[in-house]
Structure formats: structure tokens, C-alpha cells
């Protein structure tokens, strides 16, 4: 357990150290800058709510990724699955009649289905076409991105306008209900908690979770042992895509209230980094995703207060992941060297 916590804390310290150096080079007081990011993310109720709002889609997509990663699938297509979910949710928001109690569940369900469809397509490419899911996912991501752009600038354009800046906002009945004066929705928050707990339970306590792990660690022997490998892969893609699609639906209904081409905004790729950093543990996904969301929301303070470029926030995130992966590699090498040394001793 201490090793596991160290695998999280050491890279964090290294990343913060590098960031502090960068800040000093940029001529900024590092402690004040980091403090401002924290204040920008958690300084008052509004900011906490905004940080949680950013946490919801990121955490949701990351939860779905844990499922696919567990099955040994590098589902990089998650960005496209978020977009596909957002498109499906937008289609419902535009056309479905009725009050919030009807239309919101419908559009979120559409988001799940849209994302699951996109995940399933990556699954077909992988299973039938033998296309590695990394390439399939990236390709499908481009398709989803282009389709969203086409819809925004074409059939779903604002009257008299052709701009990629987004559709007309959808009617207010399709907006997620918020908590008090904030922009945070209890619907999204509840769904995220359910998703995280659900994925954790499914992976740890169910037969499906066991199959995922079997297929993930050794597909050939899993098949020999009678695990339906292809079906398991499809289900993993459906889960991963479905949760990513739900993230897309939540972005439409809870944040943008319209479809914009950049609806996913790189959250899919960020989610992959979150899951890598969490070493594929759902229990770590929640706090790490929150941490990333906090940096993302809080870093605009660097420019607002210190006149620094707030892209430094993204630098912190990148450095953090690099540090984590390097640390993990170094750890593994140390263990290996020890083992080699031990076996050398034994043979002497």
C-alpha cells in the first residue's frame, strides 16, 4: 500500500518541483502561483462547483476507460466516443418534446447509446478487421469530430450563420437542473458517483470483471479456459464507449447547452492520462480526475492575477503524467535488478 501511495505522491512532488522551476524561469513566485490555482479551483462555492462540473465528464470518461483498459484495450477513441454521445444527446435535445423529467433522461440515454455505438465500431474494427483499437479509435475520433463540425456548420446551423462556434442553445427544459446559484448539476454528480462505484464493483466483484481481467492479461489462455473473448471485448467497448458518451451528453446538457465542434475539448485524451496515472485503479481515478479538473479550472487565475500564460496548467498535467510513468519504469527496473541480483547470488 505504501508503495502504491508513493507511486502517486513521488511523481506529484517531482511534477510540482518542475513546475515550480518553470514558474521561477517565467518570473513568477511559484508558491503564490500554485496557491492561486488552488484558490481558483476551490476558493469559494462557485469555484468548487465549477471544478466539480469539470470533474464530472472527465471522471465519467475515465471510469469507462478503466473497463476497457482492464480488458487490455487501449481505447484511445474515447475522445470520439464523447463527441458521438454529445451528438446523439444534441439530436434529442433539438427534437424531443416534453418537460425536463422526460427529455433529460432521454437525451442522457441517447448520449450513452451514441458513445456505445462508437465504442462498438472500434470493437468491430478490432475483432473483425484486426485493426488495433488505437488506430481505429483515432480514426473514428476524426470521423466523429468532422461529423459534429458538419452538423454545427450545416444542418444544425443558426439561422443565417455558418460558424463552427456552435448551434443555437437548446431550450431550457433540456438543461440539467443545478444546485442553488451554481452551474453544478446534482444529476451529473450523482451519475458520476454511481458510475465510479458501479465500475469498481463490476471489476472487483462480478464474473464479468473476472473475464475482463482474464482477457486482458492473456487472451489466448482465457479462450482456452472457455472465456468468450470476443464477446468480452465487445462488452468492454460498449461500457467504455457508453460512459464516454454519457460524459458527452452531460457536457451538452450540463455545461454548453448547445453542440460545439470542440465539445470533447481534449477530455478524452486527458482521461487516458488520468487512468494511466491511476494505474488503472478506479479508486484512484476519482481523486486524480478531480485534481486534473482543479488544475484545468484554477489555472486561468495565473493569467487573471499574475499575467502568466495559463497554459502552464496543461504543462503541469503533462509533466505530472511523464513523471508518473518515468517513476513507474524506474520502480520496475529496481525490482528487476534486485531480483536478478538475488538470483545471481543464489546460483553462485
Amino acid at each position: 500500500m505504501t508503495r502504491r501511495i508513493a507511486s502517486f505522491l513521488v511523481p506529484l512532488a517531482v511534477a510540482l518541483g518542475i513546475t515550480a522551476l518553470l514558474l521561477i524561469v517565467a518570473g513568477a513566485p511559484p508558491l503564490e502561483a500554485l496557491g492561486l490555482i488552488g484558490e481558483g479551483a476551490f476558493g469559494d462555492t462557485t469555484r468548487i462547483a465549477d471544478t466539480l462540473t469539470a470533474w464530472i465528464p472527465l471522471g465519467m470518461a475515465a471510469a469507462g476507460l478503466v473497463v476497457t483498459f482492464r480488458a487490455g484495450l487501449w481505447n484511445i477513441g474515447v475522445e470520439g466516443q464523447i463527441i458521438a454521445g454529445a451528438i446523439a444527446a444534441s439530436a434529442v435535445s433539438r427534437s424531443a418534446p416534453g418537460g425536463p423529467a422526460i427529455v433529460i433522461p432521454l437525451l442522457l440515454l441517447a448520449g450513452v447509446l451514441g458513445g456505445a455505438l462508437w465504442g462498438w465500431l472500434a470493437g468491430i474494427l478490432r475483432v473483425k478487421g484486426r485493426v488495433n483499437e488505437i488506430f481505429g479509435g483515432i480514426g473514428l475520433g476524426f470521423v466523429a469530430q468532422s461529423f459534429a463540425t458538419y452538423l454545427v456548420i450545416g444542418p444544425w446551423k443558426r439561422a443565417g450563420v455558418a460558424s463552427t462556434s456552435g448551434t443555437e442553445p437548446f431550450r431550457e427544459e433540456t438543461w440539467l437542473p443545478t444546485i442553488g446559484d451554481t452551474r453544478l448539476s446534482w444529476v451529473g454528480l450523482t451519475l458520476l458517483v454511481i458510475a465510479l462505484v458501479g465500475v469498481g464493483f463490476m471489476l472487483g466483484r462480478t464474473r464479468f470483471g473476472l473475464r475482463l481481467r482474464a482477457v486482458g492479461s492473456n487472451p489466448a489462455s482465457a479462450r482456452l479456459l472457455g472465456v468468450p473473448a470476443n464477446a468480452t471485448l465487445y462488452w468492454a467497448f460498449l461500457w467504455g464507449g457508453g460512459l464516454a458518451g454519457l460524459a458527452g451528453g452531460l457536457l451538452v446538457a450540463g455545461l454548453q447547452h448547445k453542440l460545439v465542434p470542440a465539445i470533447a475539448g481534449g477530455r478524452g485524451f486527458l482521461a487516458v492520462l488520468v487512468v494511466l496515472l491511476a494505474r488503472n485503479r478506479v479508486a484512484f481515478v476519482a481523486p486524480i480526475a478531480l485534481f486534473f479538473a482543479a488544475i484545468s479550472v484554477g489555472s486561468s487565475q495565473l493569467q487573471l492575477r499574475l499575467d502568466l500564460d495559463s497554459s502552464l496548467g496543461a504543462v503541469i498535467q503533462g509533466v505530472l503524467v511523464l513523471a508518473a510513468v518515468l517513476y513507474a519504469g524506474w520502480q520496475a527496473r529496481r525490482v528487476l535488478v534486485k531480483r536478478l541480483a538475488a538470483s545471481a547470488e543464489a546460483t553462485v
Binding site: G265, G266, F269, L270, S310, V315, G318, L322
Partner: peptide, 22 residues
């Protein structure tokens, strides 16, 4: 993970997040 991170950092940059102009 190691090879992916490289790819991802590129993708995050290309994906149009705040990292674009880092």
C-alpha cells in the same frame, strides 16, 4: 504506458486543449 504517453501528449496538444500553445 510509456509509449502511449508520448503519443497522448501529442494528441492532447493537437486536440485543441489549453495545451495547444504551451
Amino acid at each position: 504506458s510509456a509509449s502511449l504517453v508520448g503519443l497522448l501528449l501529442v494528441l492532447v496538444a493537437c486536440g485543441g486543449t489549453a495545451g495547444t500553445t504551451t
